[in-house]
Amino acid sequence: MVDLDNSSFRLEATNLTLAFGSNLIQRDVSFAVRPRSIFAVMGGSGCGKSTLLKAMIGLLRPVSGTLVVDGEDYWSTSEERRTEIGRRFGVLFQSGALWSSMTVSENVALPLRLFTRLDDAAICELVELKLALVGLAGSGHKMPSELSGGMRKRAGLARALALDPEILFFDEPSAGLDPISSNRLDELILELSGGLGATVVIVTHELPSLFAICDDGVFLDAEAKSAIAHGSPRQLRDSCGDPTVRAFMERGRATAAREGGGRVH
């Protein structure tokens, strides 16, 4: 069970229920994210991981339950206050979601221009730094459509880092990347979060990423429509009693074995 001590958590969800209209996605999801941890939201495709992320970054109001961010109830404050809290967040969307009518540099610069009082030279300097951090130094003049999938994600990450966020959210960072790029992105996430002292919430079903970087997490199940396990991916793999979780963590080996044994050849 999760230890519930308000003061020591960055982000705390209690009995969150999410739905699109009458279509229930997840029910009574509770978890807590410790400061500076890398927290995984795990689960099979279509179980509502990304929907849960939407609720955490203010895009989808939960039907019920509370989400407390640094001691403040995120969804019951005013919209202005929610926006202010949200400015401490950095979000990397699944496709990068770069603003396609602006260059990479302008993408990273826009939040700085809108929300800081920095002058152009300072903004330019910061943009160069963020792009260099993600390995895109010198690519700032390119348009998003000229970048490869991996570069687009890294550019999206640079933009997510623009305002030096305290909590970073990643939606399927390795989706659509080859193993080497996805591994490099994992390392980048690890180094950046360490360097910035940020807390990371990462939505993924990629086992290598989960084991490599996450130290805590919650497992959502599509059939139960709820969280069925809490803990780090390694812990869940080694000692979780739930067969669904174990099958997932062992990459379906258990189920494959079961089905294989039953099939007539």
Binding site: G58, G86, F89, V91, F93, A97, W99, S100, F115, L163
Partner: peptide, 16 residues
Amino acid sequence: TMQGNEEIDALKTFGI
């Protein structure tokens, strides 16, 4: 198209 590409979501999360 921006909607489909999550660009609108990105604007909202930045509070724009």
